[in-house]
Amino acid sequence: MGAPMETGKKKMRRFSGYRILEHWGIILSTVVLFATGLCQRFWYVDSAQWFILKMSGIDNVRLIHRCAGVLFSFELILHIAIAVGGIARGRWGPSMFIKKGDLQDAVHNIRYYFGLEEHLARCDRYDYMEKFEYWTILVGGVLMMGTGAVLWLPTFFTRVLPGESIPAAKALHSNEALLIFLINAIWHIYNAIFSPEAFPLDTTIFTGDISRERMLREHPIELAAIEGVEVEELLGNGHKEAAAVKPRPEPGVP
């Protein structure tokens, strides 16, 4: 995405300003959606009821939830449109697409955790964990958007859909919401804040910058492509222990 930018020796540009803004938008809309949605899903819990009353009633909570839903849907549609448009026009490669190598990377990393491998898997611009998170949220987001619309306007949708689709939409909406919430609350928050490598906060998505050292550790394939060298060469220079475990896939984003 963003062009590499030499800020001293160590800093590299990873995200453009638009992506930083987009992330802020997603934070805002999802925090509001989770707060106003989870209290509706777990309405029988005391704290949920406390929150609803603090928000001055369930009608307000639903209204805010729907407004945030509209904002989220707008962000989602814009994101898909830009991604599809960008790829179609060749401005960037399909770096988020899931590849066969991602599964191998996952197996490799688990072996590494158990001490069966020497080093972490060599990843491209996005590693398999980031891809998993991205796609579950993207697909989940589309699902939430659709089912949310059905729940918002049930009489409109039952003109074409069977009546049973409303409780089905409710089941999907609330379960998928919980799934996305858990991915965010456990996985994303760990990786971005509590992971020993990121603590106290992985600032890349807020500043757009990443250190070359981290690029080398986490995204060596992309770094090699940026610097125009082979992965083995790059790791040979910067990372003595590291050795190439797989051939370099097609080039990442310039």
């Binding site: 009489t155 039952t158 049973e164 089905a168 089941a171």
Partner: peptide
């Protein structure tokens, strides 16, 4: 319309025999 009342699952808890989709 006439589809709409089906949204109400006749007070049944969905099961394999009643409303299997849900």
């Amino acid at each position: 319309n006439e589809n709409f009342p089906d949204a109400w699952l006749s007070h049944y808890k969905p099961s394999l025999s009643k409303y299997p989709m849900i």
